[in-house]
Amino acid sequence: MAQVGTDRVKRGMAEMQKGGVIMDVVNAEQAKIAEAAGAVAVMALERVPSDIRAAGGVARMADLGIVEEVLKAVSIPVMAKARIGHFVEARVLESMGVDYLDESEVLTPADDLYHINKKEFTVPFVCGARDLGEALRRIGEGASMIRTKGEPGTGNIVEAVRHMRTMMAQIRKVQAMSYDELMAEAKNLGAPYELLEYVHKNGKLPVVNFAAGGIATPADAALMMQLGSEGVFVGSGIFKSDNPEKFARAIVEATTHYTDYELIARVSKGLGTPMQGIEISKIREVDRMQDRGW
């Protein structure tokens, strides 16, 4: 009997995205540009994170007309964002045939206590995390893919770097621990014990781990790959740059050949101005997206 929505099928989908770039798009035209540039998937949104940040107010699931338009425009997988805890938005997006859901801090949370029980869904979920405990809590709830939170819509890589470095250091630490230390560490991290046991044995998360939140140049993407991420999400960076098409292609190449500095130099030349960045300390605490999620 064929089984749909198994862990292997949901996590496997993310495995197929490895080494690739997932790009934020707000219409069919951008989706086609992203696909032509070599994106492995697109994230269909109403507004990219930097515009959400600028607009303020409550950010919700995208206009479903946009989601539908993007689903029809490309043959690569289409992702979409639901608010943290908003399982009805998630169900609606699932029913439309969206291939992957992002329970995302970029949108205004709908629940200030609980995340979606993602195990109940046939469609896989990606969730943001700042450290190992948060990543394992999300996986415990059924996330099939993790990404760093970074600080979305800033074009500033510093938070994504911090989150990836933190997670990798914690993974190394857990791997080196003796077995008797694991339960106390599970308590410290607020992580499910069985998942921590997996990390101890395997030295990695049980799901694919991407970087997101502030990637604005090809070199940023390569940096995140070298720090251990298995692929990258680029949100505002591409379609807020001077030449989105060229920029998108450059990010894809830098992600594939992340240790080839001559290649990164070649693809980075003449890209024009990247998106304008924001210094993290200039963002009011209440406006920090990475603090959303529990």
Binding site: A2, Q3, V4, M13, S75
Partner: peptide, 14 residues
């Protein structure tokens, strides 16, 4: 034929 069994929600193991 590409994506011939449907979208991700139709993905399966057997």
């Amino acid at each position: 034929a590409r994506n011939a069994f449907g979208r991700q929600k139709d993905s399966f193991e057997v």
